[in-house]
Design a binder for these strands. Sequence first.
DNA 1: AAGCTGTTTTAAAGCGCTTTGGTTAAATGT
DNA 2: ACATTTAACCAAAGCGCTTTAAAACAGCTT
Lengths: 342, 342
Amino acid sequence: MKLKEFARQLGLSPTTVSRALGGYPEVNEKTRKRVAEEAVRLGYRPNINAVRLVTGRAGAIGVVMGRTGEFHFAEFMSGMAERLDGEDIDILVSPTTDRDSTDEIPIYSRLATSGRVDAVIVHSPKPNDERIALLNDLGFPFLVHGRSETEVPHAWLDIDNEGAVRRATSHLLDLGHKRIVMINGPAGRTFSLHRDKGYRDALQERGVAFDPRLVAHGHFTDELGFRLARSYLEQSPRPTAFVAGSMMTVLGVYRAVRSRGLVIGRDISVIAHDDVFPYLTPENMIPSLSATRSSMRAAGARSADLVLQLLGGRPASEIHELWPVELILRESTGPAPTEVRI
Amino acid sequence: MKLKEFARQLGLSPTTVSRALGGYPEVNEKTRKRVAEEAVRLGYRPNINAVRLVTGRAGAIGVVMGRTGEFHFAEFMSGMAERLDGEDIDILVSPTTDRDSTDEIPIYSRLATSGRVDAVIVHSPKPNDERIALLNDLGFPFLVHGRSETEVPHAWLDIDNEGAVRRATSHLLDLGHKRIVMINGPAGRTFSLHRDKGYRDALQERGVAFDPRLVAHGHFTDELGFRLARSYLEQSPRPTAFVAGSMMTVLGVYRAVRSRGLVIGRDISVIAHDDVFPYLTPENMIPSLSATRSSMRAAGARSADLVLQLLGGRPASEIHELWPVELILRESTGPAPTEVRI
DNA sequence: AAGCTGTTTTAAAGCGCTTTGGTTAAATGT
DNA sequence: ACATTTAACCAAAGCGCTTTAAAACAGCTT
């Protein structure tokens, strides 16, 4: 059913019907009501593509899905979806199989110029991120999930990675740990750098020398957590604590510790970052896992919200949100063992 | 830059330019080449929404993202993205916070009638799925990922869940296990029913009585795996083997077994279904996990492919794919312990 | 040289909607 | 009673493209 036919059946002009449905004031309240009811009854829905053409709005927010870290991504998107439910805005996912953000440039470029989306979300930026530069050059609305150090003014939402790791590390230091390993995210991303900084600052505050060999970078996989933890545990002197970048990483760390016959929370303390997944929770681990916590889903929901504000005209330079991160202590952290033998 | 202006600059009519870009035969090869080059040089891109309006095609495939099982979902979508890379087709994600597929009816209805997508993918159907009935009634193209028992002809892609579980269970029976617990997916979904059937058939083949209390249903979470396994292990006689529905479930099962001081692969055998995630792999578990394996990512890629075929005119009734599932034996399965004490 | 054929290009219609710039009818003011 | 305002509705333009139907052009015949 087209607008014209629908309007004819109502005995109204297309103009009035369109306005009634659009909620414009110059339509009699009774008429509006009638139109709304009949639209439901007769199943009339405006052709979205016609609307998009004529309004110039795409009614969609774009995200680029990379090969790695999909479990975070799904949770973030799910949060976006939650917020966008009811709005007439879709989420459009663009594929990329590439690992480096530079390779994503053509994708963002296409997304920004093709008119399929009204805004895009940029994930895990680097300090000097090409994608941000590009989108700014194109004058295309975007929100950065994470932070960058670029001069370019832009909207962003980030969690306090630095503070999270600083607190986690400080807590371990307070417990007497000296050799603390950090298994961080991929090198080069701002969030990894922030975590590095939080780690180093905590050491410095407590006057513990920074040993770069205790910090590793890589993707958030169970395997990497295992392999790295395993090799660290073979070193002498042995580390007594781990800070792990994700829930997947920490699965591997737990396994590595156990496989060496060590006890988590006694021989080895562990803190991880928890993005709050419905299917894998730190309190259920054995021993329950001390974690810095920040809901990825909530970040997704808020990001969608901020993008909506951005599209509503709020200046990008005004949209900056830094979320604090909780540190939740459970059983995986304990006093450093007084004597470390190998 | 609009078509009109671009054509003017080339000294051609909009018609010719449109055809050149669209690859129609009635354009001189030289002209086409010139148009293509200039389009790149001048940065001309057809307005996608105008194209969509005039062609009536949306250039997108819809998927509905539920609240649960997001880790599977992301992997599936990632596969779709892989296949769709290069095609001018997007993935459109519609949110739902509901748990039951009946609640998704309005979402599918909206998706199908709004012209935003050319086809949708239906996940985890029930034997008599309302969504399939709806989409069929609407005459809207769709592919089912999973199977249904409806009379309605439709395209589907599924893995052999029944065969997978039958083989897993048979293998455990061959090893001498008698009390085999199955932690299955949500009740009511066809794939869960198929797995139930595979389990029962295996028992029957070997002449082992079916005990319904040994089969549990629920979402694929670490916590459920733990809670259920924990409570089964307290029973007497104790089960000697578990078939777990997902990698998350099995994490909980492993933990439960260990927390009882039992050894996996010796006291308790475990087989799980592995959807092949880049961040969590059965071979890395300790002990390494015997699993039925089928790549969710590959299913996503193939699904996208089949949807493209569907849109290309291939009849839905012709599109049925049942993928075999490998059983890969590792260390988590072993002979049933001869004597089971509690 | 006119007719015919096949190739290449173009003018113009129209996809389904929103919105500008009206018109008409009713309400209000003088 | 007439002018003026306000409320309610409408005709038609136009968003940027594809595609139908027709025109222009070139290459051959006869």
